[in-house]
Structure formats: structure tokens, C-alpha cells
Design a protein around this nucleic acid. Sequence first.
DNA 1: TACTGTATTGAAAGCGCTTTCGAGCGCTTC
DNA 2: GAAGCGCTCGAAAGCGCTTTCAATACAGTA
Lengths: 343, 343
Amino acid sequence: MSRRAAVRLIDVAEHAGVSLATASRILSSAGAYRGRGEARERVLASAAELGYEPNLHARALAGSQSSTIALVVHDIRDAYFALIAGAVVAAAEQHGMLVTIVSTYRDPQQEARYLALLRAQRPRAIILAGSGFTNKSAADPIRTELLRYEETGGVVVTLGRQDAGHSIIVGNQEGARSLAHAMVDLGHRDFAVVTGPAKLMTVRDRLTGFRRGLQERGIELAPEAVIHGAATRESGGTVAAQLAEATHRPTCVFGSFDVVAVGLVAGFQRLGIAVPEEISVAGFGDVPVASDITPRLTTVRLPLEQVGQQAVDLALSPDPPVRRSVAFEGVVMLRDSTAAPPS
Amino acid sequence: MSRRAAVRLIDVAEHAGVSLATASRILSSAGAYRGRGEARERVLASAAELGYEPNLHARALAGSQSSTIALVVHDIRDAYFALIAGAVVAAAEQHGMLVTIVSTYRDPQQEARYLALLRAQRPRAIILAGSGFTNKSAADPIRTELLRYEETGGVVVTLGRQDAGHSIIVGNQEGARSLAHAMVDLGHRDFAVVTGPAKLMTVRDRLTGFRRGLQERGIELAPEAVIHGAATRESGGTVAAQLAEATHRPTCVFGSFDVVAVGLVAGFQRLGIAVPEEISVAGFGDVPVASDITPRLTTVRLPLEQVGQQAVDLALSPDPPVRRSVAFEGVVMLRDSTAAPPS
DNA sequence: TACTGTATTGAAAGCGCTTTCGAGCGCTTC
DNA sequence: GAAGCGCTCGAAAGCGCTTTCAATACAGTA
């Protein structure tokens, strides 16, 4: 390895016989600068020949315009966030921007800490996809970080929380509501909901939506019919066993995360309870696994592609005078894990 | 939004009554610099009070030490890569580093282009997890990019290719070989392999390993028993239909990606062919879905956690005198989708 | 031909940080 | 008491770029 130094703009300029400033203007294609033609050609040719690649750090420092977008998710390994990340990365790429991803593993401490670390990178925008610890107090450290970041000129886009920056409503509440309607229309009257930790906005929204959907059809969801567990497959399995043994068994169980629903289905099957013949199970998210299992899972599909794209659009929108809010809707995917209740 | 300027190091220095240099030394904790005690305290206090966060761009520019690691994957939405990304992000975080992720969607053009864009960011290291277009010619644009990047002092870590930088062997070949052994031990003699595009290193390695494993048990894999398709669930479904109609049906099908195997299983089931009673299906990767479907999929688990961790370790290892190569082994997860062949 | 207005160019001033270089200080050692 | 050592600390030089600012070129008009 000959450890050659990276080629700098000034190398290109000298090679092309123009000044540093000119080279800069041509290569960063600032505004309507076209060059006299000949100079332009020479600079472009030199840059290509030398393999010049601008130093983004220098560029960011001088121009105070970073070319990275930060994305904060709960867990990048989770299909839901992976899908969002994919969309964000793709959309960012179209603007020539790079995406820095951090994964907080649902730890609010971690989340605030990461936010600080990200602030150091001075990204053009921070997209908070995984937040949602509902800490309404003004002292919420995450909110504090976000506001501080906004104050110094950064753009914030949040998914599912609406206390800072632009916000995107991903359709959790509304989608769960539609799902409730669909289940009632199937003939169900007796429900259980198994969901995640109550602190998460996602959990609350889906629960609220589902409950409201039922109410609109004249059905009340009893408090004891709501089971808070972990948002994991295992949790679904455990609850399935509990439900199977209970004296009173609902005809339809809503697992407010697809993985939970998958666990429920597997759990019921293991216990010899047929899905959907004896009990219906619905999920939320329409993560790939939903259509990989047998029976294919009824669930709510969120337009994550569009959400990611929209997040980037908001992130890159020129100096926003106001905070904007965009809402998406989930669509119910009626598949094979739900049916009319046994008579 | 009051659009306040971000606090700079010099603000901290002045607030603490020390020079810029001292503040820098204390806050970047360079080496054994402890300060006289009192100065140290004052600077730390000021930094905290003012909410100082160092500007990474300036830091990278001055110290020529970037604090980002770049990760290149095929598709971040794919569970396999998401798992790797999770591990890389977590490991990087422990070193206070941020990870920039790009997703090439298996397009070599894109890949080379991204590499150039990444080079602009001057990351400490580039981890290439998704590459593997086997272009052995010296003109391979990806290789060219990587070498160029190395020449300017960057560290390259590749997963699955060994033509640049440090390399990590993820156990594709060796894992597929073990799987072949296991299947033969189950009693199978008649195989089909359904896999992805032949250009991908991953595809080749898994196929080679499987074939070799069979050979070691005295079984030859006929060329027509190898079916190249897309690495998708749909592809698995299509092939299942073909296989079901074929005059000669193997007793065991190896889908060299879990998703493909999932498609195979679903396809056979739809056609009324029982898995594993009538036909065995094995996958590769042990992605979550493998244990979510019924029957649970026999597959090969790759130690992706460790791979990610190792990648970061190599990425951050001090100025490597030589290229290092680390190998991991896959372990066969015998589950419910395989059994002895029908007699 | 002289005169104005517009486009292109170069010199130079930073962006916020790290890092030499050398000065200053409090010790120990002969 | 002079010399030497091992610290801490400040001034200042840059890292590679963008962007004023002023100077020059070139067109277009009278």
C-alpha cells in the first residue's frame, strides 16, 4: 500500500490551470455558474482523471451544509424499521445524501445519548422513527435534545410523536380502527388485544384505534382483555397458552405487532386450537413474515415506503417556516388467519 | 425557533478561562493529558453547562480521523443484512462511532457509485457486506474503488470476497457442506438445489459447499438439479410447482436462502405435498422467519452477531500491516422441515 | 469609440477543530 | 545553586473546502 494522499480540490485546480475558487464553483455546481466553457471542461476532465472526490467534512465545515441525514430507529433488525430504513436510504440517495443509522434498542437513555452523538455529526436532518416514549413532561430528555437541535438550524422529522419538528402519522391509530371494523363485520364480538409496553406511542395508538373502532360498532373492550407484554414472538406464544386455558376465550385476538400475532398463531396451533376455525388472529404491520406463515396473517399494512420517502422530503424541504404534519393510512389485509367466529 | 448558533469549542474555552488548545486537549482526552486538575474541572463543567457537542466535521478535518464507519449492504430490508447491520451498529457504538449505511439493491453500477460517494465522507473504514459480484477481471470497478480507498489510508473489510482489505469468511461454504452431510445422514440421496443468481459470491459459495459436502459422501449433484432463480419467496413457490410436476422428484430440496426455502415449503404445501413427510426442505441463514413458519425450517445459522462485531474490530484495528482474514462457521439447525426420505 | 452592465475569475478570509512548537513551571539530582 | 527532567499550557499553523470581495473580461448599447 503506497499510502498516497487523497487528491484535493487544489490539485484539480492546478492540474486544470485555474484557481481554487473556480474549481470549487464548477465542481460544486453552485447555482447558475456555467464557466466560460473551456475552463469548465478542463476542470471536469482533471477531476475525472485524478479521481477527485470532494471531502465532505471540509465541505460541511465551510459551507455549513452537511450531506448526511440521521435516522434513529428502535431496532434496525426489526423488519418494520428495516423497511423504513430501506425507504429512507433510497430516498436520500436520490438527493445524493448519506444516511447514518442508529439503533436505540428501546432504551430511552440510549436514545437521548445517541441524539447527542448525532448532533455532533451536524446532520442536515434527524428522522426519529423509533421514538415514542410517551413522556409528556417538559423534561423529556429526548424532546430537549430535539429542540436544541432544531434551535441550531437542524430539521427534525418524527414518526408517531408530534412534540417536535415535522411529524408523520403512520396510520397506527386509524389502521387499527379499520381493523376493528373489519373484525366486527366478520361477526366477532369478543376480543382480546395483546400488545407491547404501554409506554410506546405505537402501542398506545394501535390500542386506542382498535378500541375506538370497536366502540363505533357498540362494543366495549374490557380492561382485562388487554394484555401488555413484550413485542416479541415468544410473548405471543405465552399469551396464547394463557388464553387457551382461560375460562372465557375470545373469538378474535389482535396482536398489535405482527411478530406477536405470529407467536399467537403458532401457540394456538401447538395447543391444537385451529386458526381461524376456532379462533381468529390478526396482526399489525404486514411485515414479510405475515404472508410467510400458514395461515397467512390478516394484518394492517402501513405504507412504509411512502413514509420513508415523505420523511426524507420533509427532512430536505427548504427552511421550514412551520412544522408540517403528514398523515398516512394503513390498509387492512384480510387474509387467512381470520374468519367468522365459530357458531 | 430562535436559530441560535451551535456552541463551539472556543466558547467553552473562554467560559472556562483557558485557551482553545487546552480545552481541546481536555475534551478530546488525547492520550495521557490530565490537566492540572482545576483546569480540567472547569472545562468539563463549562462544556456541560453550555451543552457543547464537538463538530465532527471539524474534528475529522483537523485530525484526519473520521468517526464514521460505512456499511454497504445489498438490501437493508433483507433480514440477513438487517441482522449484520444491527451488530455493526451496536459494535460501532461502543467505540463512539456512527455508521453510515447504503443499500445497493444488488446493482453493481450502484455499488461502485456508492463507494465513490462514501469515499467522499472519508469514513474510517468501509465494511462491504453485500458485495460479491464475482468479477475476477482486474477491471472490476468495485475492486478499483476499494483499492483506491485503501491507498489513501482507509480500511476495508469485506464479507465474502477476498480481493481487498481484511476479509471475513462468514461460513457460507462450510455451512452448506455441513448441511449436505446432515441431509445425507438423514438418508437422502437425491437432491435439488434452488438458489440465486450465479454471479453472487454467496450463491456460489453455498452451492460449492453443498456440492462438496455431497461429494464427500459419494453423491454427485447433477447440473440439472441446480436451479438458479431470484433469491425470493416467489421464486421458491415457482420452483416448488415445477418440482412437483417433474417426472423425477428429489427427496430433499436445498433452498440456499431461507426465503426461498420458505417459498418452497409454502408451494409444496399448497400442492398437497407434505413437508417433511413427502419431501424435505432446508434453507440457509436462519433468518427469523425460519422458525416462524410451520414446519420450522431446517437451516444453517450464521453467527451474524459475531461477524458484525468482528467486522468492526477489524475496521478499527490500528494501522494494519497485513490484511487479515477471519473465518466463522455456520451451524446446522435441524428442525421440522426435514426428515428421513419416504421409503 | 467610449460606456455600461453582466459573467467569470482569483485572492483571501474563514468554518471549528487538532496539533506542533516552544515557553513556563515545579521537581529532583549532582 | 545550576542543570535536567516531565509536566501543563498558549500561540499559531493548518486540515480542504465555500464564499465574500474586488478585479477583470466580455458583451451590448449609444
